[in-house]
Design a protein around this nucleic acid. Structure first.
Lengths: 225, 225, 225, 225
DNA sequence: AATGAATGAGCTTTCATTCAT
DNA sequence: GATGAATGAAAGCTCATTCAT
């Protein structure tokens, strides 16, 4: 799950086909990505130096370039790891659920909690994806769309079953995502005055208020009983 | 309105008390701020060099330091100019309005349109306010709170008149702001698929859906006729 | 007495032959030199900026260049002013004295006290005379030699009258000067542990110990009675 | 002996504990210090640029910052290397000597010769120690005091054995140091007219003239036979 | 695979100096 | 004489990146 499908990431040290070596390589890359993520989050992309990152991993600066082409690519890896979280956690949360309402609620909840776990990573995406060269930026964009689709599908299901009004599912998914990202933007202001649970509950309420058909509302009331 | 109340901005070249000279100074500073804002928006704070900014103003790099202490202070000036827009436009938009519903709608509308006019500036605020030294950051924070209060007051009025549910006005103002900023975050994805007018209409719908009391809803329906 | 004989100092603003204007010019130049001297002393030649100096004089930076070609020339003026002090005070101190011993003592005493009054100026001479372009450096050198001659002459007199041993007068004058400058060098270490009076007394003792003939010593003893 | 005891000098590139690497690091630092010393001496601290220094070492400007925090620290290293010379040469010169007179003479002689070897370095200490930030300045001051103590101890011994008059040993050590430094100050004037040997002999004569008790003088006369 | 010394382009910032007013 | 906004060269310093070992 490391870098999504078709990640345009260099594999300098990928070596041959030895699965053992490949695993080690993947681990190293993960180590590096984690360290970079933490430092980017704490200090910002530009302020975090490759030297710092190497130090934190406990290797030499040169080594990083065996696993990564660029500092930019390191940023990509970090952003990608956040997208990985969505791509794996949301489907897992939806796994057992059939009801579109429940599925939608679960998707929103999961998405928000991932944002809340690493709010700086979400910020980073906005802050620095501009720094990426086009190819990498495209990659991120593509994966964002994939993630959005996870939510959009829930909405489409709801519409198909007459629970949601016939909105543009994709656009509405964007609104969900923006709401979730809102927490990352304002977390340092809101923290202490509101919990993530409150935030999710309120957001869901708003979204459903705008989304539910009378039938949907009725179902929801029944489910709440 | 140049830099808010008590902006901690150096005035090296402010020189004497001659109002003529002072105006020239202010104009130069505005020029520089504008150029910096554009470049920061386009290339990001770190990638935009002082040389570039000077070039764009049509002066030498050294001159900028007659009007600004630092590159950081230039960032402050840029961020401040955005806050100036809120601080002047929102009160202007509210000027003739008495009805809390109309006032709230006007505030949201105005806020969103300012964001939409310079979405990159909003992004910049999130991107780089971390780069500011503490004193400047505090200044920005203070002004943000002031801006928020403009919205929170509308909400409090609505509550007082029984049109809005008795929510925490300040917290709800944050939700409004987040919604508005959402446009900046996703403008490059949404643009073309949704106009700012749609976005505002939808957002308002959601917010009011969550906010209105039955009385409020009735009033709104009447007003819409 | 301002700049010694034949000072190679620009006279841009010297204007015509109006003595009134010339006096004003000289006063301005003196003001500037004084301010520069103080700032050079306090902050060092390089760290003191023309802007600071202008500020201290209460004029604009540009004006200084009406009275001085260069920052270097300003340094020259400052160093020259110290040499002026020697050139005027030592002859004054020797004025009424006939006895070579008394004259020598008076010369040493005066020299040391001038050093002690502005120790940083003495340091400045060593610190920065290297910074001067050749022509200005030569000027300073020449004036130093003149000052040395004031002391050397006392020594020659003493030798002629059989009170001092037949040393090389010029070289011995250098030793006197070095001793005096020692106070400037170490003033910040010595200050508090030794007064300038003690220092002068000790120094004189040493110098005379090395210099006096038996006849000289006898004269000195008599004089002390 | 590289940087005295507890020198507060950064060791960025010091890296691991491998003695081989450490030695290389020390060598590089020594190279850089040497080049800096020469350029500071020739052109002055401010006029010598980091680029010049790098060029002279034959490395890139950036590399210097692997071995030194700052240009200031480079100055410290240069000044420290002079103090190293005192700290190692004077004890070596005193090694076999028991007689306080001989020890004092040897200390003075050694001190003066070190000054004479690198007169510009001595000047540099006066010129630019003001440029050092406080912590580094303190370091230099401390080491100067240590060096002074080497001489003061000789004087104390002489006093204890009744050969020197009961002067303040520390203060007298200062006089010795000032005399030695005098050579640095005036070397460019004196050179050619006086050798360092003459200078030392004369200085010693003066100092002993002021210092010896009758007993001391007698001993000296005996030793001279 | 791993090191880390070395590179060098390029940044922000300073400040002596000029010149239109 | 006086101003001070403007210049622009040049400085110190950083850091992503390379490569011999």
């Amino acid at each position: 799950m490391s870098a999504g499908r078709g990640a345009p990431v260099s594999a300098r040290a990928a070596g041959g086909g030895q699965p053992a070596a490949a695993r080690l390589t993947a681990e190293r890359r993960a180590q590096i990505t984690k360290a970079a993520g933490e430092l980017f989050a704490r200090r910002g992309y530009h302020a975090a130096t490759m030297r710092d990152i190497a130090l934190r991993v406990g290797v030499s600066p040169g080594l990083i370039y065996n696993y990564v082409e660029d500092k930019e690519e390191l940023l990509l890896l970090v952003l990608d790891s956040l997208l990985d979280a969505y791509a794996s956690s949301i489907p897992a949360a939806l796994a057992g659920l059939r009801d579109p309402l429940a599925r939608f609620a679960a998707a929103v909840d999961t998405y928000c909690r991932i944002v809340a776990e690493r709010p700086e990573a979400t910020l980073l995406a906005y802050q620095e994806s501009r720094s990426l060269r086009r190819s990498l930026r495209e990659h991120i964009k593509r994966r964002e769309v994939e993630t959005n689709a996870l939510i959009a599908d829930c909405i489409s299901d709801g519409i198909a079953q007459g629970l949601f009004r016939p909105v543009d599912a994709e656009l509405t998914a964007y609104r969900v995502v923006m709401m979730a990202h809102g927490w990352a933007l304002k977390t340092w202001r809101l923290a202490g005055r509101m919990t993530i649970d409150d935030y999710i509950a309120d957001s869901l309420e708003m979204l459903l208020g705008a989304l539910l058909t009378p039938l949907g509302a009725q179902r929801r009331a029944e489910a709440a009983r």
